[in-house]
Nucleic acid binder design. Structure first.
Lengths: 225, 225
DNA sequence: TCAAAAGTGTTAGATTTACACCCATGA
DNA sequence: TCATGGGTGTAAATCTAACACTTTTGA
């Protein structure tokens, strides 16, 4: 009564994290040169193995924490990647997750210690195994998600200007939008609240800072971008 | 040079198939009572284990084939389900797939031999483990997909009436639509072609049969439903 | 002859898009 | 004083949604 499925084979299962950040008007992902064999030196996502006593979701959160020291981060599963030869060493099935973090929350020293870098999503180098595919799929999913859920705020500081928010949308969707039309749509979203604070770093005149009000969002049915 | 990841543990990986069919105006899934321990007798999806030498996608196709005898079926991955205790027997991570089949292509004898049944998506019984969750997620994904890709035809016979197509959309999305508006939208899609044939089974007057023209679709940028 | 499904257009309202100028400020 | 990004409204076009009657035919 202990071994139920013994005629079948077991495999390694790993998780890989596509960590998105937004900085200098660019959507970026965190990648590094692989520090172990097989594939040493190739650009790669940060990943880890799923332990015997943790859920796959937990393994992903743990892996993200190892790399960034951040917890309670917005993460969503991208899917399982399971070609037979995707890992040159052994059979490994990997489950990809994407995470959205505010670049400023990530200690740059920690980043350097792990040897990972923020790379523009549109300028990815050739990558280890199927990692590029993972990133592409994650990006598509994130693009779809941002249309129906207010996830942009995960990538921005708590206070942000409308121009920053617009640049984020443009970077995610890969196309520019009209400033006036964009702001009109934002005005209809009561959960994006104007504060009295002004940001002077982006312009001489200064721009009002806005914040995301989660409670207001939950009451507001009116979301679409 | 053979064991790279030996400090990590291996787990069983399975696939589970959410097989959608459309019949009598209803969207249905194929489920059966589980014939093995653990969970014997509980309603369950049809699944199988991923072999050491097959990709996860191939395992899903093979599993579908075992159950239905059908190949080259539209299948998409739903995602990985990886709670520690999702399987009462052993640690098993399962990767769910949904498939769209034309109910008429599935030999009813084969169905009975496997002890599976077509159950209305809106009237699911309590189910084994996380299978209900899998079905719900598959349905949501399919609903999203049908808006941007012409997958409805996978669920219909090659020739179908506009009323059938409309009922399918209604069943998938769970809400009725206006007949005239629906037909207007279909007229704009040049890849849905009217044939000269008439179906008399659905009404006394008879309705024109239509077919999906894949080539025309690929040229036609104009899709939205 | 009547019940049941097939087929067909118009209009009002809502949404989307295109578009250009003035403002405030620090350098 | 001027270069830079911040901020604002209107009108045309498109899309969406609501709505009702005639046709055909087998029972």
């Amino acid at each position: 009564m202990t071994i139920f499925y013994s005629e079948h084979s077991k495999v390694y299962v790993s998780v890989d994290c596509i960590i998105f950040g937004f900085d200098e008007g660019q959507l970026r992902v965190l990648i590094g040169k692989r520090q172990m064999d097989p594939g040493r030196g190739e650009w790669s996502l940060y990943g880890g193995f799923v332990g015997a006593h943790e859920s796959v979701d937990d393994a992903a959160s743990r892996t993200l924490f190892e790399l960034t020291g951040l917890r309670n981060i917005y993460m969503r599963q991208v899917g399982a990647f399971g070609s037979v030869d995707r890992d040159p060493g052994e059979r490994v099935i990997s489950i990809a997750y994407y995470a959205l973090i505010n670049v400023k929350d990530y200690d740059d020293r920690l980043r350097q210690e792990h040897g990972v870098e923020w790379v523009n999503i549109n300028a990815l180098p050739p990558m280890y195994s199927d990692h590029r595919e993972m990133i592409k799929k994650a990006r598509r999913m994130m693009q779809d998600k941002i249309k129906t859920e207010p996830i942009s705020f995960q990538l921005l500081p708590q206070l942000f200007t409308l121009t920053q928010l617009q640049r984020l949308y443009e970077a995610v969707n890969g196309e520019e939008v009209d400033k006036r039309n964009f702001r009109k749509r934002i005005k209809d979203m009561n959960f994006i609240e104007k504060t009295e604070q002004i940001d002077k770093t982006g312009s001489k005149r200064g721009a009002y800072l806005y914040c995301f009000n989660k409670n207001a969002f939950n009451e507001d049915t009116n979301f679409k971008l």
